[in-house]
């Protein structure tokens, strides 16, 4: 199914989204990749507060290229989500409802998605120039010292994604059962 939705999305809304849906996102979200995730989780472990709101938010696994004069943002496609798996269940428990990336997720992440109602979208890996056109505003929200790995607050308009894993645990990557001949 093809649909347009507005961010942020609530837990209640998440159950309307199904694996395989082609979705255009409009609204506000935050970028974060490896170093920002690590720092957020360490901050929480030390009893600190997160630098961005988390409840009902969507996190985009992104580290853009620098913007040229006159550009909102540089090339801005998804990075591999799998590397965030270690940190993700905690963030889902704290209230994120959406994630945008590419690639597989761990069982622990999928379990948390089912329990707390979150959805995993994939954007097209390698389409960074195209996707940058769907980002209408970008500002650094936290961790500026991390350079390309800083957290950005992004305003997107009709940003195209595909629901890969929904809160029922349906996983589009498993549709064509990928079986290994050995190991």
């Amino acid at each position: 199914m093809e649909r347009k939705i507005t961010l942020p999305i609530t837990k209640e809304f998440v159950c309307n989204l199904n694996s395989g849906d082609y979705v255009y996102l409009t609204g506000t979200l935050y970028s974060a990749r490896d170093a920002a995730h690590k720092r957020m989780i360490e901050t929480l472990a030390a009893g600190g507060e997160l630098p961005i709101p988390i409840k009902n938010q969507t996190i985009y696994y992104l580290g853009p290229t620098p913007a040229k004069e006159g550009q909102v943002i540089g090339s801005a496609g998804p990075t591999t989500s799998t590397r965030m798996d270690k940190y993700t269940p905690t963030l889902i428990e704290l209230g994120i409802t959406g994630m945008i990336g590419k690639g597989k997720r761990s069982e622990a992440v999928i379990d948390a998605m089912k329990k707390y109602h979150a959805v995993y979208f994939a954007a097209v890996g390698g389409a960074g120039a195209f996707l940058s056109k769907c980002i209408v505003k970008a500002e650094i929200a936290a961790y500026e010292d991390l350079g390309a790995e800083a957290i950005y607050k992004l305003e997107v308009k009709d940003f195209p994604v595909i629901v890969v894993i929904d809160d029922k645990g349906e996983n589009l990557y498993n549709q064509e059962k990928i079986s290994l001949s050995s190991k």
Binding site: P64, T65, Q71, G77, G126, A127, A129, F130, S132, P160
Partner: peptide, 25 residues
């Protein structure tokens, strides 16, 4: 097909505007 169309459009934008094809340069 939709993925491939996006990649095609992406290559055109990157070349015309001289911006990176992918953010992981």
């Amino acid at each position: 097909k939709r993925v491939l169309e996006q990649l095609e459009e992406n290559l055109a934008i990157a070349e015309n505007e001289q911006i990176p094809i992918c953010q992981d340069t």
